[in-house]
Amino acid sequence: MRFQDNWFQILQTTFMQHALVGGSLVAVTAGLMGYFVITRQNAFAAHALAHIGFPGATGAILVGAPVTLGLAVFCVGGGLLIGLFGKRVAEREIATGSILAFSTGLGVLFASLATANASTTTNVLFGNLLAISVDQLWLFGGFTLLVVAALAVIARPLVFASVDPAVAEARGVPVRALGVAFIVLLALTVTMAVQVVGTLLLFALVVTPAAAALRLTARPGAVAALAVAFAMSSVWVGLVLSAMVNLPPSFFVTSVAVLVWVVVLLATRDRGRRLPTPTHGGHDRVPAVPEHTR
């Protein structure tokens, strides 16, 4: 590790500009989805989807296809299976674990056959923000628009279905369909995030910023805005630090995200706030659920 005097010039290079734009797009989608990941108790599913995408990435490497395409196919396919097989939390975890186990084994097989591309496989595991291409930026932009547009349509009923699924279903909200739609959007977010921080560090952008935001407010809109701000700050600061000392940006992105969470946790430790997890049969739920969605 060494300090680079020309770090500002490094930030102006093409690959750094691509990293900044790509990381920002991922931060937007990850921040928006993070609230629902935590509220719906889907943190394990988010982590599993990254590993489910691993055989897609290694398979794409094996056949010479784009890595993003392989990730997207396996993440979305795995997400659909999880959404269809797991209606309740317990059922969803069983389905997720089973699909995860099979996908991991498949990923090991593909990785062993693609030994000539070991560096690319490593990038899938740990991310390589500095290797984002122009084609990937266009794809990330399309994914981001799709996620934002879909959330604009389903956000209100999805909040209701996430906070109290039993009551939402009783009032005619299509809880199962919303769950499948959410898991597909999460799969697209994971597809992008894996290429920024990698399979093993995914939580840094998808869960940690939203967890920090939830310590400050329980209003869904405010949580989403704060989570996007925290995730984007983590990407930007991580890239600057990476340019300064010539180390992988994934380490700094995850470190900044966790540091923000720790600072917020310490600052709010006396407030007695609780995460807005769904309750069944009680009245302790997020106060900001829009009345017209009930």
Results as ranks from 00 to 15, higher is better:
residue 283 H to P: 09
residue 173 V to E: 00
residue 96 T to W: 02
residue 74 F to G: 07
residue 83 G to R: 14
residue 183 I to V: 15
residue 68 T to H: 06
residue 178 L to F: 05
residue 180 V to A: 13
residue 161 A to T: 14
residue 141 G to D: 10
residue 182 F to W: 01
residue 25 L to A: 07
residue 91 E to G: 10
residue 191 T to Y: 02
residue 148 V to H: 09
residue 261 W to C: 14
residue 287 P to V: 12
residue 179 G to H: 11
residue 48 A to I: 04
residue 263 V to A: 10
residue 106 L to Q: 11
residue 227 A to M: 06
residue 281 G to C: 09
residue 223 V to A: 09
residue 261 W to I: 10
residue 204 A to Q: 01
residue 166 A to G: 14
residue 148 V to P: 07
residue 245 V to E: 00
residue 280 H to D: 12
residue 111 A to E: 12
residue 80 L to K: 09
residue 287 P to A: 11
residue 258 V to R: 02
residue 92 R to W: 07
residue 111 A to V: 12
residue 10 I to D: 04
residue 247 L to I: 07
residue 176 R to N: 07
residue 196 V to Q: 08
residue 253 V to D: 01
residue 291 E to V: 15
residue 36 F to E: 10
residue 125 L to I: 14
residue 131 A to Q: 07
residue 81 L to D: 09
residue 30 A to R: 03
residue 129 L to Y: 05
residue 38 I to W: 08
residue 121 T to L: 02
residue 31 G to M: 04
residue 130 L to E: 12
residue 244 M to P: 00
residue 224 A to D: 00
residue 288 A to M: 02
residue 145 L to A: 15
residue 47 H to V: 03
residue 147 V to T: 09
residue 122 T to Y: 12
residue 116 A to G: 15
residue 216 L to E: 01
residue 227 A to L: 04
residue 238 G to I: 05
residue 74 F to I: 06
residue 242 S to C: 07
residue 123 N to Q: 15
residue 71 L to K: 08
residue 169 E to L: 12
residue 165 P to A: 08
residue 246 N to C: 03
residue 62 L to G: 01
residue 101 A to K: 03
residue 139 L to M: 08
